[in-house]
């Protein structure tokens, strides 16, 4: 073994090659980190596999009819989740409309020089704190504050404009609209944060060029800034949608858990996540498998939406440079 290949003077004893112990520690450390890296990958695969395999009995028994039938009756052994799929998509789209509008408005407000820097930072932190409040607290707030507040307004709309399908029922308590409203509050911080990143990634020169041509502030925002940041904003909306699809507690507490498909904003409904939350604790063996099937569908929808969102953001470099 060559101990001193370069022929340097190491008689001082200050330089030594790593000892056998050092090399052993190094190798095992590397192996340990590689192990946990693989464990991360396998964990996700195992989650998908486990939920899928638990659902298998129900999948083979009910097949695709499960997705298109509308009754959920444990005693008769009839299960269908069409109303839940409808409720999940309807509530998430409503929340996306509201939360998306407010989220993007806030992102514009915080990045387009409306405020001094310090105020911007304070407001940014307040919006981030909205995301920190646990969803069960929003649910509690929705039950005791929001619903009593909304009920007179909703019932006024119902009595006067009941002909419009959206207002065709009265709000007797929990319902789609309060649930979607709380959901929109919950996805607003996600949309606002990612859109802000998209706006901040635009080089200052782009804006200067627009102002230099004599645009007003909003002509610059609408014709230059938003189109430039559109990739990031779109990704933000898709990720917000993904969050809304999987949100559980606020919806389980506010949506009313009724197995009906209705276009009315004030009618109770149900979502996949809240179906799981409500039926799982008391489910027997057979129903558990059916619920696992529903969990599979939810997993599939959210994975697709989230991967699409991540892909869009990666593709556009979050600022569309």
């Amino acid at each position: 073994m060559v101990t001193n290949p370069l022929g340097l003077d190491d008689s001082s004893g200050l330089t030594q090659p790593p000892s056998a112990g050092d090399i052993f520690v190094n190798k095992s450390f590397k192996a340990l980190t590689a192990f946990f890296t693989w464990a991360t990958i396998l964990l996700l695969a195992y989650i998908v596999f486990k939920i899928g395999s638990e659902a298998l009995p129900a999948v083979s028994k009910y097949g695709l009819e499960f997705l298109t039938s509308t009754t959920w009756d444990v005693n008769e052994g009839k299960f269908g989740i069409l109303p839940e799929i409808w409720g999940t998509l309807y509530s998430s789209l409503l929340a996306l409309g509201l939360g998306g509008f407010f989220g993007i408005a806030i992102a514009i407000f915080l990045t387009q020089d409306f405020l001094p820097y310090r105020v911007e930072m304070v407001l940014k932190n307040i919006i981030e704190l909205l995301a920190a409040i646990p969803s069960v607290v929003y649910g509690l707030w929705g039950i005791f504050v929001l619903i009593p507040l909304l009920r007179p307004m909703c019932n006024f709309l119902n009595t006067n404009f009941g002909g419009i399908p959206f207002f065709s029922t009265s709000l007797s308590g929990p319902g789609m609209f309060p649930a979607a409203l709380v959901l929109s509050i919950m996805i607003l911080p996600t949309v606002a944060a990612i859109s802000q990143d998209a706006f901040r990634a635009i080089p200052l020169k782009t804006k200067e060029a627009a102002f230099g041509m004599g645009t007003t502030r909003w002509e610059a925002i609408l014709r230059v800034m938003i189109p430039t940041a559109s990739g990031g904003i779109f990704g933000a909306l898709v990720l917000g949608f993904g969050r809304a699809l999987g949100e559980t507690m606020a919806l389980a507490m506010l949506i009313g858990n009724s197995n009906k498909i209705s276009l009315s904003l004030f009618a109770p409904g149900n979502t996949l996540a809240s179906l799981l939350a409500l039926n799982f604790p008391e489910a027997g063996n057979h129903e558990t498998s059916v619920l696992m099937y529903a969990a599979c569908i939810l997993l599939l929808i959210t994975l697709l939406v989230n991967i699409a969102g991540a892909f869009i953001i990666a593709k556009t470099g979050s600022g569309g440079k």
């Binding site: 989650i47 993904g242 559980t248 799981l276 969990a295 997993l299 994975l303 989230n306």
Partner: peptide, 11 residues
């Protein structure tokens, strides 16, 4: 990060 929390419970 996008996994719905209820599915963590199911798992």
């Amino acid at each position: 990060t996008g996994l719905p929390s209820i599915l963590a419970g199911v798992f």
